[in-house]
Amino acid sequence: MKICIYCHNRIPKEALICPMCGSDVSGSEAIPQDAFYQSTLFEESTEHILDVMADDEAYSEATSRAEKQSFTFNEAKHKATRYIRFLWKKMKDPAETRKSRRESHNLYGYFTFVLSALLSAGLVTRIAVALTKQYDLLSQISLLPSVTFQIEPVVWFMKNFLLFLTFYYLYPLLAYLIKTFFLHRRHALHNWMTQYAGMNAFGLLLLSAAFVISLIAPILMAIPVLLLFLVHLSSYLVTFIASLYQTINETKRDTLYLCLGGISAHLLLVMTFAYLLFLKM
């Protein structure tokens, strides 16, 4: 073990870069632990003096935290590749084996819902702004009375993002609650979110294609874009129903009524939130 002269933390003897502060400690820049300890006995400020009696377990935990906090381009590339591989596997086989599900990260579901909300909000905002501009252009040459619309793209995008985020999160959350409290089936929430998002990997592909088309030709291709978008939204509904019907029901509650109740609750909550966003705010 040796001591970093910059942050005064213990580091491995063979380390070239301090894992705690990132300073270069190669060569003679880092001094042995005993020498550092002796030199700090007479320092006036003991604020950053290292407790040399700390055990190796505490040091290992600190080093582990520093490594987890470090961020590199290669690490980000690896995580992105792994996520894309997860979506690709889910598109080929939505109902993966238990072993494959263990290889999936628990946060993939949450990330997929946020990504879907961003793409959905961007798509709807792009179509709405394009249609508004086209309507304003036609109203200027029309002899009939016209109604003017004003859409602020940034505000519209943020409101749509919150609305679609609510839409995507509510379906798996309601399915999880129904499974837990009505069907008495236990599921880990994070794993359940990831599995639910993976079941809609193909829908995410359709949404991405619709978003790209909306950027290229929002007016000319408005109908195909909206059709692809509706198919994507419908996939979440289909997944919700399928997830409940594939669950073993050992209770007296009819699965059909559980599905209808969950869909009704989802529709009511989304419509209420949309009303508060677009009419009250």
Rank of each mutant, 00 (worst) to 15 (best):
H78A: 11
K133A: 05
A222R: 04
M158P: 01
G22I: 01
D34H: 09
F161W: 07
L258R: 01
L228F: 12
A58D: 10
T112Y: 14
L227F: 14
E67P: 01
I263L: 14
Y83M: 03
P218M: 01
L207G: 04
L244W: 00
L207C: 10
R126V: 01
Q150C: 02
Q140W: 08
H266A: 12
S28L: 12
F240V: 00
H190S: 11
S45A: 05
F161G: 06
A242C: 08
D51L: 10
N200T: 12
C18V: 00
E152R: 04
T112G: 10
S104G: 06
P224T: 08
F71C: 09
I11G: 02
G27Y: 02
L174F: 13
F273R: 01
A175P: 01
H266L: 01
L215Q: 04
P12K: 13
L137H: 11
Y168R: 00
L189H: 03
I213R: 07
T247S: 13
I49M: 07
F73T: 14
Y59T: 14
T81A: 09
T180V: 02
N9W: 13
T148P: 01
G262M: 05
A222K: 09
G122R: 02
E75L: 11
Q33N: 06
L174S: 07
L215M: 09
W192D: 15
A35F: 07
R253F: 15
T148M: 08
L258D: 00
Y171S: 05
A201G: 02
F86V: 03
V155K: 13
I5P: 15
Y176A: 06
L227D: 03
